[in-house]
Amino acid sequence: MKFSIIIPTLNEAQNIQDCLEALQPLRNTCEIIVVDGGSADGTQAIAELLADRVISAPKGRARQMNAGAQQATGEVLLFLHADTALPDNATALLRQRINRPAPWGRFDIRLSGDHFMLAIIARMMNWRSRLTGIATGDQVIFVTREAFTAAGGYPDISLMEDIALSKTLNRISPPLCLPAKVTSSGRRWLQSGLYKTILLMWSLRLRYFLGADPQTLARLYSKGHLWKL
């Protein structure tokens, strides 16, 4: 079974080298595709030394990940953020579990950082995902090429593309929730304020489910505001 690891980037020079170096032991069974959305900090130059392919696509995670999927040759696609690390046994677990019974899923998550609330936030994310069947990009969504094609790929929206894809894939099957943990950076939570970020993320998700425009939500997310654009 061949895997394609697709990494969307935009000005990730600070993280991309560590991300790609951690993936080097997997290159005998995985291809690594970096899809850049117009970085101005040298991200692409760094990635070209460590990835199998570096391509450019219009800015936006959904567009970038769809572009990577179009170029991928693997049977299973993994969508990885540049500030997230896979567990050591990720591909072995997927060989054993994917399609039994689900053709898609995600990992549990831990957030790096010393603040005690980060562990609580991660636990809440994992519980919420199990209860709702919704996976977030931070949890590293994986999906067979066949199921991804059947779902129509990521919808071309500015935010919540992971939630929208999860809802479509749930019509095929509930997700495979692997307890092995990916490690994602807690930097946004710490920089923006833990409690403010919790409130912001829950507010954005609620408004999305109530029909708010994803482009408006994306502007709020980028500014870190609940209401002010």
Rank of each mutant, 00 (worst) to 15 (best):
residue 5 I to L: 11
residue 178 L to M: 11
residue 94 L to D: 14
residue 186 G to F: 09
residue 130 R to F: 00
residue 19 C to K: 02
residue 189 W to T: 10
residue 107 F to V: 09
residue 184 S to A: 15
residue 95 R to L: 14
residue 17 Q to V: 13
residue 153 G to T: 10
residue 46 I to G: 09
residue 22 A to R: 15
residue 112 S to I: 02
residue 94 L to V: 12
residue 4 S to H: 01
residue 99 N to L: 10
residue 152 G to W: 00
residue 214 P to I: 13
residue 96 Q to G: 07
residue 132 T to R: 13
residue 139 Q to Y: 11
residue 46 I to P: 05
residue 118 L to T: 05
residue 62 A to H: 07
residue 119 A to T: 14
residue 215 Q to S: 15
residue 166 S to L: 08
residue 21 E to I: 11
residue 83 D to E: 12
residue 34 V to C: 09
residue 133 G to H: 01
residue 213 D to S: 08
residue 144 T to E: 01
residue 104 W to T: 09
residue 183 T to I: 14
residue 18 D to L: 14
residue 46 I to N: 08
residue 163 I to P: 01
residue 19 C to T: 03
residue 113 G to Q: 06
residue 30 C to G: 02
residue 152 G to T: 06
residue 47 A to N: 05
residue 66 N to W: 08
residue 171 R to C: 06
residue 116 F to D: 14
residue 132 T to C: 06
residue 160 M to K: 12
residue 172 I to S: 10
residue 53 R to Y: 00
residue 91 T to A: 09
residue 6 I to K: 00
residue 19 C to P: 06
residue 156 D to L: 14
residue 171 R to G: 03
residue 57 A to I: 01
residue 218 A to M: 03
residue 42 G to R: 05
residue 181 K to F: 04
residue 42 G to F: 04
residue 217 L to R: 10
residue 31 E to C: 01
residue 70 Q to L: 13
